[in-house]
Amino acid sequence: MVSPFRRHQQKARAVLAGSKAAPQTSAAPPAPAEDSPAGQEYAGLRAALHDNLRSLADIASHEQRQPKKAEFAKTFAPWIEGVIEANAPVQDEILVTNMIWAIDYGDLDYALRLGRFAIEHNLAMPEQYSRSVACFIAEEIAEIALKDEDAVRHDQLGDVLQLTAQADMPDQAKAKLFKALGRSWARRAEDFDATADNAPAGGAKAYAGEAEEMFHRALKLDEKSGVKTDIKQIEKLLKALGDAEDS
């Protein structure tokens, strides 16, 4: 259990590390200087992180690892808040690993908050990962949404697209995100209630149009993205909606 004093100290030193960061370049930024108080704090927390990673490696069940990651994450929250408050380019394995964990245990809002910081400051993924931060976020969250439509909110998928739109990644990874967004728009079209007070202009047809665009973008990026049936279904829905308007 981290005391309130230690939480404050961790956050303060993380802010200090950011205030002494070098100007941002296209390369990944350096970690906090080892001979500084912030660097020493970072080294201690990084050692704790690696202990946690070894503990997780001993758990065979992915499902059982998820609550442990959520529990471990509490240790690093004050440091991460300080890093974000400093808003400076400092390579931080603690922050990026907690982003990965948050996706695993389902706190996608937190994962996206950390991911936004990591992308804006060009942080690198831990060395065992081959994907960039942007690619990891786009592909992992898209796959979660495609497996379970209730696991990722529509606005979260939109945030992922906005966050990773300019990032370089394999076409197949981005196609998964467009596919997930297309299916989310399609569900909104199918569930549209024209009598609702907040019903937008254009209604179900506008939602279906967005879905169609997402599916076509996925198909253009990856012929094997598995959206051809989705396109047929959404075209059928658009025709039905058009016929309803004409009648």
Rank of each mutant, 00 (worst) to 15 (best):
N198P: 00
G182W: 08
A189F: 09
A180R: 06
D168C: 10
G203C: 05
R183C: 09
W185C: 13
A180T: 02
A173V: 00
G182C: 07
A175G: 10
K176P: 01
P200Q: 05
A194P: 00
Y207K: 07
D168I: 07
F192T: 01
G182V: 04
D191P: 01
A175R: 02
D171M: 11
F192C: 04
L181K: 07
N198G: 10
A204Q: 07
A194E: 10
M169N: 05
E190R: 12
F192D: 01
Q172R: 15
D168F: 10
K205V: 02
K179L: 11
D168H: 14
P170V: 08
W185P: 00
N198Q: 11
R183K: 14
G203M: 07
E210G: 08
A199D: 05
S184C: 14
P200R: 05
D193H: 12
A201K: 01
Y207W: 09
Y207S: 10
F178R: 11
K176Y: 12
S184P: 02
G202S: 14
A206V: 02
W185N: 04
A186L: 08
A199Q: 07
A180I: 02
A167V: 00
Q166W: 08
A189D: 03
A165K: 12
A194L: 06
G182Y: 10
A173G: 02
K205E: 06
R183W: 07
T195M: 09
R183P: 01
G209I: 05
E190K: 15
L181W: 08
P170R: 15
R183S: 13
G203I: 03
K176G: 14
D197E: 14
L181P: 00
G202T: 07
A167L: 10
T164G: 08
A194G: 06
A189C: 06
A196H: 05
L163F: 15
F178Q: 09
K174T: 01
K179R: 10
R187N: 10
D191G: 07
P170E: 12
S184T: 03
A189W: 09
K174M: 15
K179N: 08
G182T: 05
D191S: 14
K205W: 08
K179M: 11
A173R: 08
Q172S: 15
Y207N: 06
R183F: 11
P170W: 13
R183E: 09
F178G: 05
D168R: 15
N198D: 14
D197Y: 07
L181G: 07
A173P: 00
K176E: 09
S184Y: 09
A180N: 09
A199K: 12
P200W: 08
G202F: 14
D191Q: 13
R188N: 08
A206R: 12
G203F: 04
K205I: 01
D193L: 11
A186I: 00
A201N: 03
D197G: 06
A196N: 05
K174E: 10
A189Q: 04
K179I: 01
R188W: 04
K179G: 10
L163C: 13
D168V: 07
Y207E: 05
F178T: 00
L181A: 12
D191C: 13
D197I: 06
A186W: 02
L163T: 01
A208G: 04
G209N: 15
A194S: 12
A175Q: 11
A175I: 03
F178M: 07
D191N: 14
N198Y: 11
A206Y: 06
E210L: 09
A167I: 01
A173H: 12
D193E: 10
T195D: 13
G209K: 15
N198R: 11
